[in-house]
Design a protein around this nucleic acid. Structure first.
Length: 503
RNA sequence: GAUUCAGUAGCUCAGCAGGUAGAGCAACGGCCUUUUAAGCCGUGGGUCCCGGGUUCGAAUCCCGGCUGGAUCACCA
């Protein structure tokens, strides 16, 4: 339903009609040949003024200062923004001054997309500028852009309303250059990780997003329905169980960048769809995987920042290897003074209460320990730190610890007070795996809604034999938040989930 | 889901002891003949998020709702 047009929209639509009447196509079909970018010119021109005597640029008009027969304006392309100078008698060499007087001065607006050709020079004010000889309208904009002005490094009227920025990300991208940069860094992160994994020889694969059973994590799923099969399908919460089937199938290293979906609360660390990278490597264990994570994340930081040190909020996080390593019991002792290694469920419940942590009857030993850790330790772990050796109750897919009773070979990397990855020596004993699924059922009966469901085909695969395998899941959004110093997950997802707007 | 803050012009915001809405930028008109201008002068532009209520009178007070942010709960 089209809204009533506002004053400025009516004016722009009228300008559009006038352009057409003048024989100018406001949306021409043919391309416009570009031979430079603003960033290139601003970088190279001052050193070599013989170049760019015949440049062709395209982009959006971002500001205009009209002075009679000559004007200064700014054009913004994908790489940045620069000034151009446009003079009536240059673009209208004959008697007809319409292109300047009517088209440029009156019918064009901030936000319109144009192509310009001319030469680069430096003004008396010292600003690198394109002196325009030819101008072409490439796309007329019918809505006024939020105008952000800058003078002497001071920003005026910054476009900051988060609701509008997320709903109309295109505007955010047009107007806030740091946002374009954040998403470039996110892509660089993914590229860096993919290159790293490919260099190691692992195979990037794709597994189902629509799954008849959801598994591989403890979370509530989204449910959907397939019409011709007339069956319920779930959007995946993890790809773990499918990737392990591929290890059973004989690949020795597979990974997937996967969109996962969890039907849970949203806040600045959680979006209902998010991206993980999961990696499984045969004949390796979690100790080996820790080394790999350190190496990979350090390289990502280097690829993005040319340094292992990354500024995040008030902290500088240093990804240089080696990272600190603590066992779960060690780190809890470090921050609470309590040795929980021998505690049973009742004692842990009592300790939790003493530490001011709410408990309920559905919480088993694993959840209690996790709660103690999350409350007392995790927020204090700013520099990248590995926490190893988790209680078996909270890790139904991880292999029993080679020497510690009641523990599994699992680690998480914590950074800036948040988990960024989760990994284990994968459980490949099919009998034990079945018992673990059964134990999850018990938790379900006690009211834990996030129990893991038993996957009979996955067990069948394990029964054919899976090599000892190290597995990793790393949160791309979380890592992107750290690498781009973004306080909210919505700042590293182009289109974060929102309620529909209707007001 | 709970608590809390916010929603006024295209954008950023002011106005809130209740008296019929204001600034800067953007827009429109004028000035402006050749390297700076967030320039100068003038003009227009608003279901003050929506719906009720109190009142002679509500952007302002009260109640309900919508949307968003922050914190918490659940989780990665």
């Amino acid at each position: 339903m089209p809204e009533e047009l506002k004053e400025q929209e009516i004016i722009r639509r009228n300008s559009l009609k006038e352009l057409i009447q003048l024989g100018i196509d406001p949306y021409p079909a043919e391309g416009f040949e570009v031979n430079a970018t603003t960033a290139e010119i601003l970088e190279k021109f001052p050193g070599d003024q013989s170049i760019y005597q015949d440049v062709s640029l395209a982009g959006r008009i971002m500001s205009r200062r009209i002075m009679g027969a000559a004007s200064f304006a700014e054009i913004q392309d994908a790489t940045g923004r620069m000034q151009f100078y446009i003079r009536r008698d240059d673009i209208c060499p004959g008697e007809d001054k319409t292109l300047y007087n009517t088209v440029f001065k009156r019918l064009l607006d901030i936000g319109d997309i144009i192509g310009i050709k001319g030469f680069v020079f430096i003004t008396h004010m010292g600003e690198i500028t394109v002196h325009v000889r030819e101008m072409k309208v490439l796309s007329k904009s019918l809505r006024p852009l939020p105008i952000v002005k800058e003078k002497d490094d001071q920003v005026f009227d910054a476009y900051t309303d988060p609701e509008q920025r997320y709903r109309q990300r295109y505007l955010d991208l047009i107007v806030n250059p740091q946002v374009r940069e954040t998403f470039r860094k996110r892509t660089r992160l993914v590229d860096s990780m993919r290159n790293f994994l490919n260099d190691k020889g692992y195979l990037e694969v794709e597994t189902p997003i629509l799954q008849p059973l959801y598994g591989g994590a403890a979370a509530r799923p989204f449910t959907t329905h397939h019409n011709s099969l007339d069956m319920t399908l779930y959007l995946r919460i993890a790809d773990e169980l499918y990737l392990k089937r591929l290890i059973v199938g004989g690949y020795d290293g597979v990974y997937e960048f996967s969109k996962d979906f969890r039907n849970e609360g949203m806040d600045r660390f959680h979006n209902p769809e998010f991206t993980q990278m999961e990696l499984y490597v045969a004949y390796k264990d979690y100790q080996w995987m820790m080394d790999l994570v350190e190496e990979m994340v350090e390289r990502i930081a280097m690829d993005i920042h040319d340094s292992p040190k990354v500024k995040v909020g008030d902290h500088v996080i240093d990804f240089k290897r080696p990272w600190k390593r603590y066992t779960m019991y060690e780190v809890i002792r470090k921050y609470t003074g309590e040795d929980i290694s021998g505690m049973d469920e009742a004692t842990l419940t009592a300790l939790s209460r003493k530490l001011g942590i709410e408990t309920d009857a559905s919480m088993g030993k694993g959840k209690l320990i996790d709660a103690i850790f999350s409350e007392t330790c995790e927020p204090n772990l700013i520099q990248p730190t590995f926490i190893m050796d988790y209680p078996v109750e909270m890790s139904p897919l991880a292999k029993k610890h080679r020497s510690q009773e009641g523990l599994v070979e699992r680690f998480e990397a914590i950074c800036n007070g948040k988990e960024i990855c989760n990994a284990f020596s994968e459980l490949n004993d099919p009998i034990d795996q079945r018992l673990r699924f059964e134990a999850q059922k018990e938790l379900a009966k006690r009211g834990d809604e996030e129990y893991m469901v038993l996957d009979e085909d996955f067990l069948r695969a394990l029964e054919f034999g899976m090599p000892p395998t190290a597995g990793l899941g790393i949160g791309i959004d979380r890592l992107a938040m750290i690498m781009t110093n973004s306080p909210s997950i919505q700042d590293v997802i182009f289109f974060p989930q929102m309620r529909p707007e209707h007001h």
